[in-house]
Amino acid sequence: MSEARHPLPARIFVAVAAAVALLLLGAALGLLIRLPSFDRAEPQPSAVDIGFAQDMTTHHQQAVTMATLARERAADVAVRQLAFDIETNQRDQIGRMQGWLSLWGQPAQSSGPPMQWMTDEGGHAHGSGPAATQPGALMPGMATSAELSRLQSLRGPEFDVYFLQLMLRHHEGGSAMADYGSRHAALPAVRELAKNMLGSQSTESTLMRTMLTERGAQPLP
């Protein structure tokens, strides 16, 4: 009778062992799928990838500053909601770009002229706006210190209008960088992020134009 009792535990042990083996095999296959191919060179970040991540981080940081202020101070709940969306999205995008720069062993910000990565070898600028030429120069769409000070001094509906004007100009000013990055970055992830920026900010720009019209205001020149 003792021999008759052994087959069942033995069968259970074999089944468990087989299941574990299949799990280990699946995990190994998953790792192989995730590992880069040794038969082809993986793309490396180009000057466009690096410059885009550095300059767009700087551009986004100002938008986050304005959006944080509007989220706390705007009189209209619709403006506060827009500010919350902009702050959340752009903080997330800054995190991704800074993560890439860290992985690439690159500084968080460029020490050279902004948007220099949007020029060809002959020094000709690309995109819908001119590249900045001096280190520390403001990129297209960015607010000056005086404009930011004025925004901080305002309250109520006047604050809402000026925030919408500054943020609309900010979004539209950064579109040239996003467009160039979406077409010329070497890494697919960078191109995709730039493309997503174009789409989301275009939608937000349309909304801000509508909100300005509803308030009897015009975009800034």
Results as ranks from 00 to 15, higher is better:
3 E>C: 09
18 A>C: 12
25 L>Y: 07
28 A>I: 08
28 A>P: 00
35 L>S: 10
38 F>R: 12
38 F>H: 10
39 D>F: 14
41 A>G: 01
43 P>S: 07
44 Q>D: 09
47 A>D: 11
51 G>M: 09
60 H>V: 05
64 V>T: 06
65 T>E: 15
72 E>K: 15
74 A>Y: 12
75 A>S: 15
76 D>F: 09
76 D>Q: 08
79 V>M: 00
80 R>F: 13
81 Q>T: 14
81 Q>H: 11
83 A>S: 07
86 I>D: 01
89 N>A: 15
93 Q>C: 00
93 Q>F: 01
105 G>H: 03
105 G>V: 01
105 G>R: 05
113 P>N: 07
113 P>Y: 06
117 W>R: 09
118 M>K: 00
126 H>Y: 04
126 H>M: 12
126 H>N: 12
131 A>F: 00
132 A>M: 04
133 T>R: 15
134 Q>E: 14
143 A>C: 07
148 L>H: 08
159 F>A: 05
161 V>Y: 05
165 Q>T: 04
167 M>C: 08
175 S>W: 04
178 A>C: 08
187 L>Y: 12
188 P>K: 08
189 A>M: 14
198 L>I: 09
201 Q>T: 08
202 S>F: 02
202 S>A: 15
204 E>H: 03
211 M>P: 08
217 A>R: 04
218 Q>G: 00
219 P>H: 05
